[in-house]
Write a protein that binds this DNA or RNA. Sequence first.
DNA 1: ACAATAGACTTGTATAGACAATTAAAGCTA
DNA 2: TAGCTTTAATTGTCTATACAAGTCTATTGT
Lengths: 244, 244
Amino acid sequence: MLAHLFDDMPDASQPIYAKLKQAITQKISHGQWQVNQRVPSEAEWVKALGVSRMTVNRALRELTAEGILVRHQGLGTFVAEKKAHSALFEVHNIAEEIIARGHQHRSELLVLESAKANVEEAMMLGVRTNHGIFRSVVIHYEDDLPIQIEERIVNASRAPDYDKQDFSKHTSYEYLMTTAPMTEGEHLVEAVLPTPTECERLQISPTEPCLQINRRTWAGDDIITVARLLHPGSRFQLFGHFGR
Amino acid sequence: MLAHLFDDMPDASQPIYAKLKQAITQKISHGQWQVNQRVPSEAEWVKALGVSRMTVNRALRELTAEGILVRHQGLGTFVAEKKAHSALFEVHNIAEEIIARGHQHRSELLVLESAKANVEEAMMLGVRTNHGIFRSVVIHYEDDLPIQIEERIVNASRAPDYDKQDFSKHTSYEYLMTTAPMTEGEHLVEAVLPTPTECERLQISPTEPCLQINRRTWAGDDIITVARLLHPGSRFQLFGHFGR
DNA sequence: ACAATAGACTTGTATAGACAATTAAAGCTA
DNA sequence: TAGCTTTAATTGTCTATACAAGTCTATTGT
């Protein structure tokens, strides 16, 4: 019996289908269920929870509509790939994107440090206790032209091996997506003038405007990472789509 | 009987709930049902279409999840407000936004012209026949500081009275949203340097970067408008949120 | 050995019915 | 009139059942 699945729920008075959705979402965001892993079938949930199939069906169908699960008739239900392109604002993996455009990607690690969170950074991360953080600065190239400076602060308690990654092989995005899959995020986009150092690193003139994306992502209630992505305006556009 | 509602459907082999969703969406996007108007209740659909209530319920529930309808227990189902903040990329009404920030909004109409679509613009609009178009340029102020230059090309066949609007009273956004509610849209965001004329109009220095948003919106299959929104980088940020 | 068939399991859709919860309006009472 | 109660309409949820359709495996037949 999996009735205990519905313990420690914030709101016990939710409808059954909502509780099931939440339980499944938690399993995924806590890493207990991996991407592409098969989840119990409708019949199994029915047996385990003692509820009607239509109730289970609704939960699974809605999670599918939300892109959290993928269902295949005759096969089963699976944890969905973490979609690289979220509904509107895409959460890019810059490397994949460049390769998809048919170009070559390369990146250089400029800074990688570990530290106790100081007051401001703890505020940013919304971490209550004094967890450790990592800070990295990486520059990404598209065919030898700089396309992004990525400055990132990472919650060490949710991504403990961040500093042991080989950032020339995998992007920080890839590690974070597998280790602490995001469930929520926030973007702030600005047009800014880069600093002299950044101009040099990006190989642009001091008057060239840059698109700066400040991104914060969560997994459940914990902030995973805060990133500042700086793109030369002449080489980068941000695309979004909405509607049906 | 409203069985004829399901005529002229692209795919007749759709499930019932999907056909109903499509029929309702069409009524809204074609302007037959206005915002906040009440739509038939589940019981009425059941009687009119001769289907089960759960089938109707699924259609209405999904449209509600998609933000197209709003439902109130005990009251009924209504056409939703066109959400000013779409899921991630917001489709701003700049005036509302400024007022919400507690500031004063004012706008000036710089250009308003009507023309037969030339080749390029017809291409942009995706209009096959030689429909007319309107072109407007408006500058928006937040407390007497310029915050946006809005250049817009409008499909005259879907917004015939665009040139008769008083743009000091209502934004073009408001007119378009009531006349031809968008169902789909696209954004392209860039960081650019403004032209000398634009610098003057925005009262900024020639080296100040600007955030330029190129937006295209559709209602059904027709492009309604193409807009170019230019914001001073020092006074404007774009915010987006995703996840659950 | 190979192909066709049958069966089991899965998701997808549709139906009929039940009760709960919310709201507005009508009706009743002091 | 003012306040309370009842009633009708509506949406929200849940159940039980049924059949269709896709996928894989095991069996059967040649």
